[in-house]
């Protein structure tokens, strides 16, 4: 187990270097020069442009630039933004907390409500409850997230005045609830469908009959035997989804005006702020890698037949 974890952690290093290299090169290959963009429509002052480039090391050959970036990164230096002259690490740490909170809340909603409703539907398969939940999940899957977002914003926000339509204070969990609901809606529907189908399948399994025959109370039969065995595909999905929620919150962040990672990356991409884009994307890559590892380890907890050597 310990050796397995160490091996997986070591594997992350080449993945990390490879992915930062690819993104760095892609940013470089994009048309448009971020220093030139400082002057907008106006023709730039050549001498000033050269001085700024020299100051930021942007006139070095691209491979040297990447090497310098990597050396800085190892020492915890994420570089400097070209336009704002701020440290990239400050820019990221301004935006990260809001995104983490939003993601955590959306993830919680997805997991709790999704598995709960999925379980309910699975146990009542074919009954009215099941059909009701099927309808709900189809609705959530078919309506795009920005429509749901604008609906949440317009009705409880503007028309009824229950809540502020945009997020003023990203540390206020109450304000984050609506955006989190909008963000979670699609994953929620998938988790419901996924849980329901595995529950329906496993409900008729031999071990279920055995458990019942042993005279176990219904709660233990469902909780320990049925749910635990049915959760493996759901956990896989939730793991991947956690990364998706974090990286894919950009639409929701836009609608509810949340100063998060999605907005930061989008703006940095438009302004060709390579260091910022690579920094944020590297962070998201690390999150994906760590979650993938955690999901694999969770399999062993859920199903004792799975062992890692």
């Amino acid at each position: 187990m310990g050796r397995y974890v160490v091996r997986r952690l070591l594997q992350m290093i080449p993945v990390f270097i490879g992915s930062t290299f690819i993104i760095f090169m892609m940013m470089y290959a994009l048309p448009g020069d971020p220093v030139r963009a400082l002057w907008g429509e106006r023709a730039p002052d050549e001498a000033q442009m050269a001085a700024i480039k020299a100051d930021l090391g942007l006139d070095d050959p691209i491979l040297l630039q990447y090497w310098n970036y990597l050396v800085g990164l190892v020492q915890g230096d994420f570089g400097t933004q070209i336009q704002s002259r701020r440290e990239v690490i400050d820019v990221i740490s301004d935006a990260l907390p809001a995104t983490l909170r939003l993601t955590a809340l959306a993830f919680l909603i997805t997991a709790v409500v999704g598995i709960g409703l999925g379980l309910l539907a699975g146990l009542r398969a074919g009954k009215k409850t099941d059909r009701g939940i099927l309808f709900l999940s189809l609705l959530l899957i078919s309506v795009p997230v920005f429509v749901i977002g604008y609906l949440y914003q317009t009705y409880p926000g503007v028309k009824w005045g229950w809540i502020t339509p945009t997020v003023r204070d990203s540390e206020n969990w109450g304000e984050l609830l609506l955006p989190a609901l909008a963000l979670a809606s699609l994953s929620l529907a998938y988790v419901m469908r996924l849980t329901r189908s595995t529950i329906v399948e496993n409900r008729r399994a031999d071990y279920m009959r055995t458990a019942r025959a042993k005279g176990l109370p219904q709660r233990r039969v469902v909780g320990n035997h049925l749910l635990r065995n049915s959760l493996i595909p759901v956990v896989t999905f939730l793991g991947v989804d956690l990364g998706n929620l974090m990286a894919g919150a950009i639409v929701t962040e836009g609608i509810f005006n949340i100063n998060g990672i999605g907005r930061t990356v989008y703006e940095a991409l438009n302004a060709r702020e390579g260091a910022t884009v690579v920094g944020v994307v590297s962070f998201i890559i690390i999150v994906y890698l760590v979650i993938a590892l955690l999901v694999d380890l969770l399999y062993a907890v859920l199903d004792p037949r799975i062992r890692y050597a």
Partner: peptide, 9 residues
Amino acid sequence: DGLEAAYTD
């Protein structure tokens, strides 16, 4: 970051 959100506010 969007004119729409400002209008809503």
